[in-house]
Simulated scan of single mutants.
Amino acid sequence: MRAMVLRAIGAPLVAEERPEPQPGPGEIRVRVEACAVCRTDLHVVDGELPNPKLPVVPGHEIVGIVDAVGPGVALPAVGTRVGVPWLGHACGHCAYCGSGRENLCDDPLFTGYTRDGGFATHVVADAAFSFPLDGFDDPVAAAPLMCAGLIGWRSLKMAGPAARIGLYGFGAAAHIIAQVCRFEGREVYAFTRAGDTAAQAMALSLGARWAGASEEKPPEPLDAAILFAPVGALVPAALAAVAKGGRVVCGGIHMSDIPPFPYRLLWEERQVLSVANLTRADASEFLALAPRAGVRTTTHTYPLAAANEALADLRAGRFQGAAVLVP
């Protein structure tokens, strides 16, 4: 198999030839058809997430075909198309798992971070944390759903029944969740970096009622805001944009420090919440909803060997939508 491997924090990924991995008990081996590139991959490569398994193969928005199964695995069967997400395993016995909050598991494994991921031709995954993708016939289009879509969906649920919702950072997650919002009859307000007219135009083309710079005030108060951009300074900006009782949901796994802000921005029962990982229930809900909502992903493909280029383009904001590696 071929893989792009992170051997040292901050270093470019290295192309390697490896023996094909063999699935153990409860595991499957997936022949990777596509793996989207997520901002979390940048956080892993840049060392903003602590204690990765090194060396590690990044990538956690995986779509592929099961080509081998380990002992004890009946489903998914060989030949099934599956998606493999960020949460690669949960212990199943801690208090969080026992209360339906496996996203907060005390002893988890994360794909592309603490176990090898999908920047490769093959990956071994926990069968119980892999999702059949019946009806998803385009693996490139489906790949961004495995994180941008799933984390976006969990963030949207945490935003509550907001009629007017602001999306800060209009990248892979926002361009998916904006479509879900419109399907649900919500008004979308898109916030981008100043001068990013391409992202603003994309947001408007997907049905956003308004698009502008993150520093701007929306034309009317929001019921909730979701921050996909990992910029702590956007928290007080979003608090200033939401109405009384509004929620600000931080959708990323890493964010720069939140600066001090006056209590009056939080007062009147505004809330700041964070999203951690996902549950399998989130995935089941979203993968059933996405086709009904008519979600279409905008993707830019790269060969596996160009993984470093894809990461650099993501860091620099050189494209709209999602980058996808195609082995």
Rank of each mutant, 00 (worst) to 15 (best):
L6R: 01
A11Y: 02
P12A: 02
L13P: 04
A15L: 13
E16K: 05
E16Y: 09
E20I: 04
G26F: 10
V32H: 05
E33N: 05
R39D: 06
L42E: 13
D46R: 07
E48Q: 13
E48H: 15
L49T: 06
P50I: 06
K53D: 00
H60F: 05
G64H: 13
I65E: 08
P71E: 14
H89L: 11
C91Q: 04
G98Y: 04
G100P: 07
G100N: 13
R101H: 12
E102A: 01
C105K: 06
D106V: 12
D107K: 05
P108L: 13
L109G: 08
T114N: 02
D116C: 07
G117N: 03
G118Y: 11
G118P: 13
A120F: 01
T121P: 02
H122G: 09
V123A: 14
V124H: 03
A128V: 02
F131S: 01
P132M: 09
P139K: 06
G149I: 10
L150Y: 03
L150K: 02
I151L: 15
I151G: 01
W153T: 07
R154W: 00
A162M: 03
L167K: 06
F170W: 13
C181R: 04
E184N: 07
Y189H: 03
A194D: 13
G195H: 10
T197M: 05
A201I: 03
L204G: 10
L206M: 14
R209Q: 08
A211Q: 12
K217N: 11
L222C: 02
L227E: 13
F228S: 15
G232H: 05
L234I: 02
G245S: 12
C250W: 00
C250T: 05
P260M: 08
Y263M: 14
Y263A: 15
L266P: 15
W267G: 10
E268H: 14
Q271Y: 00
L273P: 07
S274T: 14
A276G: 03
L278I: 11
T279K: 03
D282M: 12
S284Q: 15
P291R: 07
R292D: 07
A293D: 07
G294H: 11
T297E: 10
T299R: 00
Y302D: 00
P303F: 01
A306R: 14
A316T: 03
